[in-house]
Design a binder for these strands. Structure first.
Length: 412
RNA sequence: GCGGGCAUAGCUCAGAUGGUAGAGCGCCAGGUUGUGGUCUUGGAUGUCGCGGGUUCGAGUCCCGUUGCUCGCCCCA
């Protein structure tokens, strides 16, 4: 039998990986709070219809990547492949369409059945933000600004470029799509096999093909600009203006197309060149039709999601663990007194640990190994005098400190 | 779903042409019965990913399989 190992595409997050993971979430959560976002936790599996209905028939996420199965009652449930649909469902379920706007932050696991690669897993983790209610372009700019602030707080904004596009409103998009189909149908024979298929299923996708032959043709392809309705064009202009006013640098890329069908108007991707083929680190757009599809009233919304694993890999350095204080008693009487000291330090907010066995040499080695910044050495001699020998493990210097003064002495 | 590369100790890796496994780091114990990080001596590392085949003999060759990895598709 093969040794037990995590299921393909899943992994354990431990040690430095977990510190990076936690740091990304904590940083994003704090930034989202400054914008007035509240955190929601929704189920990691939903009625299959929540996703099947809304993501679109053409996206692979629906057609072949969902973890869908029947539960014991015979209902079809699906592990969430993304969380925007779930948030919209929760909005409707909880009657919050009456209390708009809702500004939602979330963090948690997502599941897609696809071939694992660097920065791409079958169970992966996302942070995300959704701004539900406002139809104004300031909302688009503001939520993008939140994303930019998070990347900046993580110290990785220098590796990332924000690419921006508009998909227009429904009428604009339909007209543009027809023009693209005309153009590419004329060139059909010159397209890659993948793009010939896209031409039938999702012609907009040809625009971000990586095939060099396709890219040549895409250069000459019509752009959406002339097809935008006056309203869609001025909406896009307002998004750009507000981004500039909010201090967010961006680059327009008319070939940005989002994968999921529910997007309209603003589409954006924060991309990096440091992660190979998985360069998209945070992406989103406006999805004005989704809440209605979930059974709610027509409700405009805009949001994004970001991959925690991808962000973690971009961090320039790993967050340092807090250096503990090692308490080292010598003998039984000292150990009893040490327990009191331990709890006093912990309740003062300090990280304090005591080994479960071993002589002083072993305990000091252990203290060194766990990165302790100080050791509190307590033997009969110290006990009788009401002091502890506090040794600074970086300098090696040691001094006797009265029990009552320990927390203050060791506070950072 | 498609194509390429890889899999040897906890970690990073050596092991030409087939002759039943090594290094460094780490780990354990001693030099030091109340003083770590340096030094020094010694010790244990292991179904060579898994299964099958060829062979007197397979870590090494062949087939299958699982996982990782890079690219495509797709996407965070």
């Amino acid at each position: 039998m093969d040794p037990l190992q995590p299921v393909r595409g899943t992994r354990d997050i431990i040690g430095e990986d977990q510190r990076r993971h936690t740091h990304v979430i904590a940083t994003a959560r704090a930034a989202a709070a400054t914008y007035g976002f509240d955190e929601w936790t929704t189920p990691i599996f939903e009625d299959t219809r929540v996703f099947a209905r809304t993501l679109g028939d053409t996206s692979d996420v629906v057609t072949k990547e969902m973890y869908t199965f029947s539960d014991r009652g015979g209902d079809s449930v699906t592990l969430r492949p993304e969380n925007t649909a779930g948030i919209c469902r929760a909005l409707v379920t909880n009657g919050l369409t009456q209390s708009l706007p809702q500004k939602v932050f979330y963090a948690g696991p997502m599941f897609r059945y696809e071939r694992p690669q660097k920065g791409r897993y079958r169970q992966f983790h996302q942070i995300g933000a959704e701004l539900i209610g406002p139809a104004e372009p300031l909302a688009d700019a503001e939520i993008i600004a939140l994303g930019w602030d998070i990347l900046s707080a993580l110290g990785i904004e220098g590796d990332i470029i924000l690419e921006l596009n508009t998909l227009g409103d429904a009428a604009s998009r339909t007209a543009y799509r027809a023009a693209l189909v005309d153009y590419f149908t004329d060139q059909r024979a010159a397209l890659s096999a993948d793009s010939q298929e896209r031409l039938d299923k999702n012609p907009l996708r040809i625009l971000d093909s990586k095939d060099s032959r396709d890219q040549m043709l895409v250069q000459q392809a019509p752009t959406i600009a002339p097809f935008l309705s006056p309203e869609a064009a001025s909406f896009y202009d307002a998004v750009k203006l507000n981004l500039t006013r909010l201090g967010v640098p961006f680059r327009e890329n008319p070939r940005i197309v989002r994968g999921l069908d529910y997007y309209s108007h603003t589409a954006f991707e924060f991309v990096t060149t440091r992660l190979g083929a998985q360069g998209t680190v945070m992406a989103g757009g406006r999805y004005d039709g989704l809440v209605a599809e979930m059974g709610g009233p027509p409700t405009p919304a805009v949001g994004w999601a970001a991959g925690i694993e991808r962000l973690s890999m971009l961090l320039r350095q790993s967050p340092a663990p807090t250096a503990p204080i090692a308490v080292i008693p010598m003998g039984e009487a000292a150990e009893i007194a040490a327990l009191t000291i331990l709890q006093t330090l912990r309740r003062a907010g300090l990280r304090a640990e005591m080994a479960y066995r071993g002589n002083m040499k072993r305990r000091l080695e252990r203290a060194n190994k766990i990165g302790a910044r100080a050791a509190i050495i307590l033997g009969e001699d110290e006990l009788n005098r009401g002091v502890a020998a506090v040794k600074n493990l970086a300098t090696g210097r040691q001094a006797d400190i009265a029990f009552a003064d320990l927390p203050a002495h060791l506070a950072e």
